[in-house]
Design a protein around this nucleic acid. Sequence first.
DNA 1: ACAGGATCTTTAGGATCCCAAATCTGGGAA
DNA 2: TTCCCAGATTTGGGATCCTAAAGATCCTGT
Lengths: 256, 256
Amino acid sequence: MESIDTELAAKIRNDILVGNYDGGERLSEAQLCETHNVSRTPVRLALRLLEREGVIRRGEGRGYLVQSPSVEDIRQAVEVRGHLESLAARLMAQNPSRFDHLNNLKQAIEQIESAISELTKLGRLDDGITRQAQAANETFHSTILQACGNDYVGYTCEQISHLPMLAVGSMVFDRSVGDTPDHFERGMFRLRMGNAQHRVICDAIEKGDPVRAEGMMREHSHTMVEYIQTFEKQNESLTVADLIAYSTGHNEKKLP
Amino acid sequence: MESIDTELAAKIRNDILVGNYDGGERLSEAQLCETHNVSRTPVRLALRLLEREGVIRRGEGRGYLVQSPSVEDIRQAVEVRGHLESLAARLMAQNPSRFDHLNNLKQAIEQIESAISELTKLGRLDDGITRQAQAANETFHSTILQACGNDYVGYTCEQISHLPMLAVGSMVFDRSVGDTPDHFERGMFRLRMGNAQHRVICDAIEKGDPVRAEGMMREHSHTMVEYIQTFEKQNESLTVADLIAYSTGHNEKKLP
DNA sequence: ACAGGATCTTTAGGATCCCAAATCTGGGAA
DNA sequence: TTCCCAGATTTGGGATCCTAAAGATCCTGT
């Protein structure tokens, strides 16, 4: 467990993302002290943290203004992360020591494959299995970030990973309209397609083809952008809170 | 002027980058209070900031460990920033509202051009003129980051811009071996080459050719990586402090 | 003499206090 | 009635104090 300020920052961040504050609302240190029953010191530390994360901004004179990200913001951030991951894929394909990590990639692919099989047998989304698939997906993506040989790619990804859908390896399952067979089929297709892309990426990395690895990763990352756009078309008034509900990622533990 | 903690963070960061601390050295809050004559509160805020920047890391039990970036780290970070800028160039070339900012790009190119002329006439590096060129260069690059339509590209760039040579638009002049005519010529060639690339990028953006814009920007950014590698070959024991001395950027004001 | 534990010291986190600056409010003058 | 200035109040930054925990040290028992 981290110190209070970190979890405090998580709480406030969550409140902001979920939409408990109106955009542009001013929040004062004293108020936050009261509502969270802590002293001002951790509050100030948390505010500095959140300021650097960009979810709050300093007002002109005094006070902080909440800067709730919009769905468009999330889409943009996903675009950036995807671009960084494509760099990672290229670098890993050029990295002589890439073979040390190939097994991780292959294992992750197989785990996702078996999860797909189970889900297909089951005929519906099961929370445990989707979680397994998500964990394997995270392994796949974070392995590439780690094994690319450039620590700043991963570091830079982390800088925006506090936003919903931006934890590395987070996946999206469309739970918006319940478990109709149609939606299930579409979700399964996405999973199979995504894992097929994983295979191509892994193959390109193994063969040392940086261009193919980067291109495929770019395409792979782009699917997340497309999901968001699909959601936006389905649901005119899509909120960030909705995106949080659709996404599965290791940052979801912060979101009750 | 920001509050004390921000400049304190800048001071400590500078101390670390310049090499006043040994890598892995433990630094305590109390000690920093003494050396900088401030209370513990701003020190703690500064430490949190630096922790998030990655120049210090939390130790196991207590204390922070300085995590001085190596020259290789800088090279990696430059690589990441270049990749992000290439995304920005692509996005700007696709952005319908790009024409609003084209003039800024063209003006910056012309300013650099005239700076090159003056330097050529002068026959040596002049600090004022190089500064003008640097300012125009910064305008060029930050315009693209702003006009690309994706705020997170610029935001993410800023997250690593505290490192030397990583301020957006920072340029490098090789001042390592004095003002020999040979070095001057090489520097001028780099400037002309860089500005020629600027023209291509600007043209590609204007014509709406995202592939060309991205590719050229990638090449343009790569020159910085090459500079670093050149320096490394010239100077076996190249330090981060050396890189700071070579680079010109708007973050240099922090470095006395 | 060595090992283990108790105690002492150092250090970081949290709370509280003080101060300066900024905003708000009310009164007075034009 | 409106504008402006001065005092009151809010609010954020910095300093200081207290506490808990992690190391370090020393003492004691075997």
